[in-house]
Simulated scan of single mutants.
Amino acid sequence: MTWFIIVVLIIVLIPIVLLLVKSDKPYSAVTFYDRAKEVGFTIGEANRIKAKAREVGLADPGEALWHTRELDMVIAGFTEEFRTQKVDKKRDTIAFMEKLYDFRKRLEFDNPRYKFGIHSTKLIRRNQKLKILIQGLGVHQSTLVDNNERYLVITYPMGVKVEPGFNWKGKKISVYFRRDNDAEYVFDTYVLDEVRINNIPVLQIAHSDSLFRSQKRKSIRMRANSPAYLYLLRKGDTAFERPERIPGLRCIVEDISDDGAAIRIGGKARAGMMVKVQLWINDDVIVMSGIVKGVDYDSNKNQSVLHIQAMPLSPRMRNLVRSHVYNIKERAKYEDESALLDGNIFST
């Protein structure tokens, strides 16, 4: 009797197992259209996305509405199609692509790493650039050189001048840093000791589990390292996206997004300047204007990194930037990028 029951169970379970194994479509057509409606696409737009997903080789079009990699394949397919048909500059095409990119951004920022960040200084990586606020001495730049269980080791704050006999031990400081693809952080701590490593003075500072996270990343940035031209904007200039015909200040675009860029130049610069940056990625000319919100100066290299907050881009330019942010290809790296930089044009 026992054997009979076992045989019956096997006969019943085998078809069920085979159905589960063969079922390689996690989403039904109903699920696809429900998801499309949920994220803001019309039925017509959903049909276009489904057709393009199949065209680029996706067995299940629903994957493009749940995963960034598959959505990027669809966006790349549309980009190539519209450029081939020479309709990429039409108003309805731009509007449709902007809708796709807006959804792409939302899908990216659903990733937990963008939502939660870090809560302890023990998670800060080496070589992180820091700004140190020292009461009575101002704000100075530093770099994290080591992070262990007991304390952080940072370089001696650049440019700080102290009286002979000044004692760092026990000194309270505030530390600010911008974490890549995350947000800006601030925490308060104190100096444990001042020591020398290989005869170079460094500070050991205490860990903190009370990090204040602010100005969360609102857009995805692309590592660029692309040569570009930088122009000073004068009062009354309004051609914020018009390509310039003459060379400007040579610079390097370190990273770029649809709301700003980090630009490296030779020499010093100051915050508050209005500038325009012009670069070429593949065959596309990208032009962006904005205000310099912050400057990181490296005295050893005599170079500055300008953090530019862009003025609102036109839909076409915004889509152009996003097309490269989400479809980035490896570009040639310069052995000596410093050779591409001009000198103290913006020195103060």
Rank of each mutant, 00 (worst) to 15 (best):
W3F: 14
I5C: 08
I5E: 13
I11Q: 10
V17M: 13
V17C: 12
L18A: 14
K22H: 13
S23A: 13
D24W: 08
K25Q: 13
P26E: 00
V30D: 10
Y33G: 03
R35L: 15
V39T: 03
G40E: 04
F41S: 04
T42N: 03
T42D: 01
A46Y: 01
N47T: 04
R48M: 14
K50E: 14
A51D: 12
A51G: 09
K52H: 04
E55H: 14
G57Q: 05
A59E: 12
E63S: 14
L65Q: 01
L65C: 07
L65G: 06
T68W: 01
T68A: 11
D72Y: 05
M73C: 11
V74D: 00
F78S: 03
T84D: 08
Q85S: 12
K89Q: 13
I94R: 02
K99P: 05
K99G: 07
K99E: 07
Y101D: 05
D102M: 06
R104I: 04
K105E: 11
E108C: 10
E108N: 10
F109R: 00
F109L: 01
F109S: 01
K115S: 08
K122G: 03
I124G: 07
I124L: 06
N127E: 15
K129H: 13
K131H: 10
L133F: 10
I134Y: 00
L137S: 05
Y151R: 11
T155H: 07
T155K: 14
P157K: 02
M158P: 06
V160S: 04
V160W: 00
K161T: 13
V162N: 03
G165V: 05
N167M: 10
K169E: 06
G170S: 02
I173M: 03
S174Y: 08
S174H: 12
F177T: 01
R178M: 11
D180I: 10
N181L: 14
D182F: 06
D182P: 03
A183I: 06
A183C: 10
E184M: 10
E184K: 15
V186E: 11
Y190I: 02
V191M: 00
I197R: 15
I197N: 09
P201E: 02
P201Q: 03
V202M: 07
F212K: 15
F212N: 11
R213V: 07
K218V: 11
R223D: 15
A224I: 00
N225P: 06
S226H: 11
S226D: 07
P227C: 00
Y229W: 09
Y231A: 01
R234D: 10
T238W: 06
A239P: 05
E241L: 08
R245I: 12
I246S: 15
P247W: 00
R250A: 09
E254G: 08
D255W: 08
I256S: 03
S257G: 11
D258Q: 08
D259V: 14
A261M: 09
A261H: 01
R264D: 01
I265Q: 01
I265K: 04
G267C: 04
G272Y: 05
K276H: 03
K276A: 02
V277M: 08
Q278C: 05
Q278S: 04
W280A: 13
W280Y: 12
I286F: 05
M288R: 02
I291F: 02
S299K: 14
N300F: 09
S304H: 05
V305F: 09
V305N: 12
L306I: 04
L306A: 02
S314V: 07
M317L: 07
S323M: 09
K333F: 09
E337V: 10
D342M: 08
N344K: 15
I345F: 10
T348Y: 13
